[in-house]
Write a protein that binds this DNA or RNA. Sequence first.
DNA 1: GCCGTTTTCGGCCCGACTGTTTTCAGTCG
Length: 571
Amino acid sequence: MPAFSNAKVAEILRGVGAAYQIKGLGNKFQIIAYENAATSIEHATESVYEFWKEKKLDEIPGVGSHLQTYLDELFQTGKVKHFAEVTKGIPEAALTFLNIPGVGPKTAYKLAVEGQASSIADLKDRISSGKLQKAGFSTKAIDNITRGISQLQGLKKRLLLPDALNIANELISGLKKDPDVIKADPVGSIRRMNATVGDIDLVASTTDIQKTLDTFAKLPQVKEVLNRGDDRSSVILKNSLQIDLLVSPPKSYGSLLQHFTGGKAHNIHFRKLALERGLSVSEEGVKNIKTGKVNPCQTEEEVYKFLNMQTPPPEIREDTGEIEAALKHQLPRLIEQTDILGDLHTHTEYSDGLASVKEMTDAARELGYKYSASTDHSYPNLDYQKRLKEIEKYNYSHKDFRVIKGLEVNITSEGKLQAPDKVLEEHEFNIASIHSSFSQTEGELTDRVLYALKHPLINMIGHPTGRILNEREGYTLDWEKVFNAAQEYDKVLEIDGYPARSDLPDPLIREAVKRKIKLSIDTDAHRPEHLEFMNFAVALARRGWATPDLVINTWPIPKLLDYLKKPRMKS
DNA sequence: GCCGTTTTCGGCCCGACTGTTTTCAGTCG
């Protein structure tokens, strides 16, 4: 049987949950159980198929005895009798319509059966030709579906974190002009520093809730107010983005922040734990169920303190173990931007950068770094000698800063390095990266990376998955082999913080951290301003639970240079 | 269907909004 991806298994389970709901089977908690299992599998850092092969499906939270049996059947035979029975008679299209925001199982089924729509394109046709209205859908329902479809089709491109953060910050500074606004923050995936952001949610603490909601509605960026409740409002900006604002008095701002920051799974897990202790947690505060008394929390720390636990940093509130660690008061000390002593991946006009060695290096010095690596691409026409001399000249005249002579060498499609060993020997830090032939097989791509990892003159693999967010998926590597080789040869994997790359993705960072593989957190800057992406690089590393000890660019220069020399001494 | 710091039975996160519902169902974050 072909191995099913986690995403595929999650999709199957969601479909079964939806089918239960459409047919009115079971009870609502069975449906929730299927959804919980789907979410849990989707967020697992390892393949559920591997879990099954190693007979440890029971380690996945939300997968109990029944689902273990079903998954066993799925992986052995490729299908599950029970699932087939449950989904029998439900058109394929109904499951597709579930992806439309605002459309749940009931509506999706109704659209497919009563509306007779066979695809999203067909659904759009039926809306514009009036057929859907004739089939008994109300005008408001149709408006809602239309809005959902355009959202779905617009959402294929999620915002990159820096863009989302810019928009959020502009709105926040607008809100803060209202003297009643005491604090305002982005929440949700922005606050968790996800590399991409779907929608932008803001919270504010204010002494006059209604006035602050008015201020929000009147911000110059706002085109239209979608809805307004007692303490919240949604607007559409002139750039078509939807923004939600939630407002509270200062005394419960911590509860509000906590409620809207964590990923869904984190919140559910946290509130379940609270419930076991007789506490009900909401955005209003922490309620003692017995006495009915609500304790609003001014800060998030107060919320977590009710369960006698540490406050997990926002970046890791995804329910991947942070709650257990926080309960034991054993959260790791995650890497911080002030730990970083230098940027080890930068380009100049010698390759495809837009600034000189001096301009890039001056900018790095101004950021307070002790060193940086200049790592131009191994272009065949690159004048290596001239470039190296320029670096040496900079080092000679700046004793307080060290430029490391680096190179980003291509791993060719034949699995060799683009520069000869003689050139690599002249550089102190060699990054090997794949920039071509992405469509090779997993085996071929993996062999290319393994060749580079074994090569004694290579120190690091650059942007290891090659993904470009919103443009192309990363190539698939056999990560077990890559991680093993990185460990065996004591090589570095890059955390490339260039926002469209954000590569390694955080689940792979997490795995690398577990294996104590060395990491470098850098920006892949192509111009001086790009050096400021370091905060995004660090955030990505934090999402992968990276600690400073594994990150080579937290080390002072003598330790770093010793380490970089090590592999070539062995050979 | 899952799960256990009173529980192997009896609960299951919480609250809000929308629609056409006069008391609730569907959906979302």
